[in-house]
Design a protein around this nucleic acid. Structure first.
Lengths: 345, 345
DNA sequence: CTGTTAGCGCGTTCAT
DNA sequence: ATGAACGCGCTAACAG
């Protein structure tokens, strides 16, 4: 196997007895180039299977045409769908996607950011790990002019672009839906207290019940750290309340599944003795014999696509020469979560 | 926000009144460098937060330290797990991972390969789309010295590295398991005929039944194109056989789920009237009230990790100078699929 | 319309 | 022990 090196514009130039810049221009359809030369160059390029060396272009243009995506994991359908959204937009803009999974480990998250920074990615899209409390490594990116867009699990920092789902509307719909079904004691399994969304959920819960003139019992609002064991403990606590809740709103579908598992273990019939509504939605729900009654769709694909679109805009904005640079502004896009009622089986 | 450019060795050199090569050497702990100068350089580099410009290094070394991963989608847990395995190994070797989803579209697959080639990735890992029949774009990569490793869905080409699961042993275990449970009429839902694995499965099926001296009825072996509709049709055909099969072996877990859905629709009780065993395994199986009796684990994480390891070896092999180049050899790693019997609920 | 040249950041000879 | 100079492939400013 001969080490068949890829052709460069220099070789093309030599074979045609023209200069490299002529070749470069011809390949870029530069206006002031003789039609004849242009043809000759393009033909030879095709014959030689010439492909521009991106590496050289990146180097020259000080860009990598790669964006980094950092998220907890790819295993959850929510995130893999988000990546698909990001990939679609990035590809359209000729950008490549570099992936790093933090596995919810703050140290690993930081490490990934560092690697991506050294790699000189042009921008980064992040969904935070659930234990991340320190945001210094993100703030540091500003120094390097690497724009960051957060999605779904976003930090409470004003000067960053963010895309997230508005859980309030979904929560409202969900609770009203359950009340409509006749439920009066509705339990909530929240995520860790650190998550902004948890606190908001509790607030919305209180608002709705107040509006509907139902009694508020905060012992019906419990927390899980998202692990199976913790969720089971949460369920145990909920079910020990008298009278026990007849419906439960779970922070996400995996938590709902764990909760349902616990319910079955203590011989409760799902959707009969106790009903579930969860956030997020995965295609596998369709295969459950007793799926949650409904789930609040958070549109991961759209969130990813939107985050990527914002990033692409940022990257392609050519600062108007001479103009005073406009003050940097940050978007905080909120996609309305929407209740999806599942079909009866 | 000031356009704070990243420091380069040139700037460090100027500030210290030394030459760039001295800085370069100092940073690399080159032996013949004065201890004092070395210290001064390294200190300043730290102070300035100097980070070598990977882009420049890639360009110079004609390497990108990026590997491409092309697979049908990330949505299926099988593939996202495989990516995790790849990512782990790549990261350890200081490589980045570029992802492209073919969505089982041969055209898109080809497009992704082209992009990655132009991007000059150092190597590519591929799991084929289910409709890919033409492998020219992969063979073409040889010209560019971009090594390719296939995993899971591998082509029938001798001169490529491959990692796949050996379905024969798993199939054997699965069928023997069902026979052990007393089943005599066992149906098989195969994938498309194009897939090598489908033909092999049929062969193994016949072998086992012969060995066990059971009657072979090939009308119990049907195909699906993996879509829900097609699987339902396959089930309909199977269930129309007299006597109808009491157990079914499905090519993967999604097909098994679709098949179970159909069974329920025609009022059969899962795990009672009809049992299922499937290939592949996803964590969600644990949440089903009536999961398949067993599944053949294909170890996606390990397959991905192994494929990445092979690729890393290829990339790091420095051809011994002067030595006659050894003839290229190709690995064909086969991981034994293993039957996992699920716990009763 | 086309050629010449500089330079992006770095590692690496070849000198000194 | 250190410096000067080159070149990787490409683009663009400048010069005809």
């Amino acid at each position: 196997m001969n080490e068949e090196r890829l052709p460069t514009i220099k070789e093309i130039a030599k074979k045609l007895n023209v200069s490299v810049s002529t070749v470069s221009r011809a390949l870029h359809d530069h206006p002031g180039i003789g039609l004849r030369t242009k043809m000759r160059v393009q033909q030879l390029a095709r014959d030689l299977n010439y492909e521009p060396n991106q590496s050289a272009i990146f180097f020259k243009q000080q860009k990598t045409f790669a964006i980094g995506v950092v998220l907890p994991n790819l295993k959850e359908e929510f995130f893999s769908e988000a990546v698909s959204g990001i990939e679609e937009v990035a590809t359209l803009n000729k950008y490549n996607v570099l992936i790093g999974q933090s596995q919810d480990d703050p140290e690993k998250e930081k490490q990934i950011i560092t690697t991506m920074k050294n790699y000189r990615v042009d921008g980064i899209i992040v969904s935070l790990g659930k234990h991340t409390k320190n945001y210094d490594h993100f703030t540091a990116l500003k120094k390097y002019n690497i724009p960051v867009v957060f999605f779904d699990r976003v930090p409470n920092l004003p000067d960053f672009n963010k895309v997230s789902a508005n859980m309030a509307s979904g929560t409202m719909e969900a609770i009203e839906f359950l009340i409509g079904k006749g439920h009066r004691r509705i339990g909530v399994i929240n995520g860790p207290e650190e998550m902004k969304s948890s606190r908001e959920r509790t607030k919305t819960y209180q608002q709705i019940l107040t509006k509907k003139r139902l009694k508020i019992d905060l012992s019906l609002v419990v927390s899980t750290d998202l692990t199976r064991e913790s969720t089971h403990a949460a369920m145990k606590e909920l079910l020990s309340q008298k009278p026990r809740p007849t419906a439960i709103l779970a922070i996400n579908v995996y938590v709902a599944l764990d909760a349902m598992e616990y319910a079955r273990k203590v011989k409760l019939k799902i959707n009969k003795d106790i009903c579930f509504v969860s956030y997020s939605h995965i295609s596998l729900t369709n295969y459950l014999e007793t799926p949650p009654l409904a789930s609040v769709e958070q549109y991961p694909f759209q969130q990813g696509a939107k985050a990527a679109t914002i990033l692409m805009d940022l990257l392609q904005r050519t600062p108007a020469a001479g103009q005073p640079e406009p003050p940097e502004t940050f978007q905080n896009i909120v996609i309305n979560g929407q209740l999806i009622v599942h079909k009866k089986k």
